Simulated assay, not measured.
Amino acid sequence: MGRRGMKSFLKGAHKQHGSDDEAADAAPEQPSTSAPKAPASQSAQPPKAADPQPVKAADAHDADDSDDDEEGGSKGPETRGKMLQRHKREMAAHKKTVQKLGSKKKDEAARLTAEMEARHARELAELEQREQQQQQQAAGGAGGEAAASAAAAGEQLAGLELAAEAGAEHKKPSKAQKRREKLAQQEAERAARIASEQAALGPSDKAVEEAQLRALLRPHGLGIREIRADGHCLYRAIEDQLTQHAQQAPTSSSSSTSVPDYQTLRRLAAAHIRSHADDFLPFVYDEDAAGGPAEQLEEYCEELEGSAVWGGQLELGALAQALRRQIKVYATGMPLVSLGDEHAGAGGAVQLCYLRHAFGLGEHYNSVEPLVGGAEEEEGKEEGER
């Protein structure tokens, strides 16, 4: 072989990862009078010496196949001993590759390791299946049943290998992951237990009260409008009512007035109580508490302005006068509470609903809103919830 022939041969060897069998099939047949070819083992050695690149884990199988071809040539299928030796070489090369990947790519290294182990197991299973088939063929007609069992065993092994490959990424979960899964399972069991206990107890006091309140509001064409429960619910409910009135008013009048927020409403109530101290002192002053009437009234107003303390009928009366609005409060088991009736025709009544069992802490104020589909639709909605 000349220089040019040797260069082209080396170039082909680099591209094909040492596949001598394919090279032999692709080469044209030479006449018997031509010079004999060099053995495959001798021709395959120069590419290995010329290639300084390390063997990657994904190419380890191809590289070791070329080694087997060099050692065994075309003598027949790979024996068990040669296969085990090749597996050992592939695993050694794979360990070097894993070391190069470093600790930051543990998941990728685990995946590659699982793939290689699965492939090795599959090859050994196929080899064992071939050996059993050969033995059965040699034994005679009794080998059909054994071959079928061997094929079934091979399919079972293949299924196990596929399952191992699918679960390679989830292999050996961390302690933190196990802890999270355990906590999630415990929380799900707790939620299911609470739900079953509540179902056994029947409707809660909150559900019963809300159903009764809806029935009370329905003849007035009103429904419950939920308000956040954060200690400011009374003032937020009044703010929501004033916002609804502003949206329903003509554009010219609504644009000239701004709706006070819940903090402003707190300050308005405190200012009205201060300016009408004689009207509110009987409800604020406590003889057993420290300080005189004026001190206790000022302390009450400061707490009203600067904290999330709950409001009640005292604050509702102060806001009815400060806003010059009629305020109505609907509640179950008690008559309608109406404050500031002298302002009934000024801008529409502020309507709230009061619940005793809305939350675990107790009382809560919600706003109301017109029923979109009328009383019939609200009644049908309640029937669906039941």
Rank of each mutant, 00 (worst) to 15 (best):
K206Y: 09
G373C: 01
K175P: 05
Q137Y: 11
P250L: 07
A139Q: 13
D240H: 14
S204G: 10
G340N: 05
L183G: 09
F283D: 09
L160T: 08
E377M: 08
D21N: 11
A26T: 04
K96G: 09
A215S: 10
G12A: 15
Q156C: 05
D279A: 07
P52I: 09
A58W: 03
S149T: 11
S252V: 10
K15V: 10
E299I: 06
A40E: 13
P370D: 04
S66N: 09
L222D: 01
A49N: 02
E161W: 06
D341L: 11
S255Q: 14
S254A: 15
G5F: 04
K75E: 12
Q326M: 10
V55D: 03
A199M: 07
L304S: 02
D341P: 04
I273S: 01
L336R: 07
R267K: 11
I327G: 06
G72Q: 12
S252P: 07
E181W: 03
P173C: 11
D68K: 09
L234T: 02
Q135V: 05
H120D: 04
D230A: 10
A290E: 15
D205W: 07
L297K: 03
Q132M: 12
D67P: 01
Q134V: 10
Q134T: 13
E383N: 09
L10G: 00
R325N: 10
P77G: 06
A150G: 15
Q129R: 15
V259W: 01
P39E: 04
H343M: 05
R274D: 00
G140N: 01
P293M: 05
R214V: 14
S255W: 03
M334K: 14
Q135G: 04
